[in-house]
Computed example of a mutant assay.
Amino acid sequence: MEQAKGNLMLLLTAFIWGSAFVAQAVGMDYVGPYTFSAVRNLIAILVLIPVVWAFGSPRGERSGLSFGQRLKPDPVTLKGGLWCGLFMSVASLLQQVGLQMTTAGKAGFITALYIILVPILGRFLGRPVRKILLLCVPMALVGFYLLCVKGDFTVSFGDFLIFLCAIFFAAQILTIDHFLLRGANSVKLAWVQFGVTFLVSAVLMGLFEQTTEGALWDARWALLYTGVISSGVAYTLQIVGQKYTEPTTATLIMSLESVFAALSGWLLLGETMSGKELTGCVLVFVAVLLAQIPLPVRKKGSSH
């Protein structure tokens, strides 16, 4: 029952993230990437305060705790939130800047490469790399080439930034798993990571961008959707869902983000892709799916 609940949370996460590419692209018409990131994460922090207050402590202990004690993270959760926030800050900012130079559909598929990068980066944490990745990685690279490389053999700088974003999202997923296994509180972990992302974005906003109240008002719907739904709801669903779902299934479900992103770009923004780009999308998505197939582990001493 808990696994089914976790799977449903992650499926909803993938849908929200995929559709949020459209909101992010629209929001960039009015404000800069650092401003957009800072405001959406500030909204997420405010949205999560009542959630952390209500569910961030064990049920039997809530009545005896003050408001501040209910919000305060334990040392493991604080450390995990700081690391997750650092990785998410870099990933989300790279994604937001990259969306100024590429389409929502392409950005969604390139971001989906984190599903393949998770087991590769996990190797550095002592996790074995399965042989199927010897097929998946070249397939994904060919798909990335068809999707992003133009006729003159150049890659869009926006596509490159989105690819870097996928690397940092993979690091964030591994960090979440690492600290949840060590007993971190999932809701407070999400709250701390939004706080870190807000601070990083706000500093960059103050250094490099100027924004008017009118521009923020024009971007209000995109900011509200990404702040309340994509950040406040979906990232929290990701962390809670990963608590109930083993990593292979979790990453497979979240890879559907790329499909929802392409569909949202087509339905809401009228984006189109050439046959070459569509072929690249198919290769990337097939590689993402194959990378998550659980293969039987050969027992020691077996000759088969």
Rank of each mutant, 00 (worst) to 15 (best):
I229F: 00
I239M: 08
Y225A: 04
K243V: 02
G232W: 04
T251L: 03
E246S: 04
I229H: 01
L237Q: 10
T251Y: 00
Q238P: 12
A250V: 06
G227P: 14
Q238S: 08
Y235I: 09
G227R: 15
G241R: 06
V240A: 12
L252K: 14
Q242C: 04
S230V: 06
A234V: 09
E246I: 01
V228R: 07
Y225C: 05
V240L: 08
K243E: 10
V240Q: 08
G241N: 03
S231T: 13
Y244H: 15
V233Y: 05
L224V: 15
V233I: 09
S231G: 00
T236M: 14
T251C: 00
Q242D: 04
A250H: 08
A234W: 07
T226I: 10
G232C: 03
P247Q: 14
Y235L: 12
A234T: 14
G241P: 02
T251I: 02
T251A: 07
A234F: 05
T249Q: 07
L224S: 11
A250Q: 06
Q238W: 13
K243C: 00
Y244K: 08
T251W: 00
I239A: 03
T248C: 01
Q238N: 15
A250R: 08
T245Y: 12
S230P: 09
T236S: 15
T236E: 12
V233R: 01
V228N: 06
I229D: 00
S231V: 10
P247I: 14
T236Q: 15
I239S: 10
T251F: 01
E246M: 02
L252Y: 14
G232S: 09
Q242Y: 06
A234Q: 12
V228M: 04
L223S: 13
Q242L: 03
T236G: 08
T226A: 04
A250Y: 02
L224Y: 11
V240S: 13
V228K: 05
T236D: 02
L252C: 11
Q238G: 11
T245E: 03
Y244I: 07
T245Q: 10
Y235M: 09
T245L: 09
P247R: 12
T249C: 02
L252Q: 13
T226C: 06
S231A: 11
T236V: 11
K243P: 06
T236R: 14
V233E: 05
L224H: 13
G232R: 13
Q238D: 07
T248S: 07
L224A: 15
S231C: 09
T248E: 01
G232H: 07
Q238E: 10
T248R: 04
T248P: 00
Y235A: 02
E246V: 07
S231F: 08
Y225V: 08
L237A: 09
S231I: 10
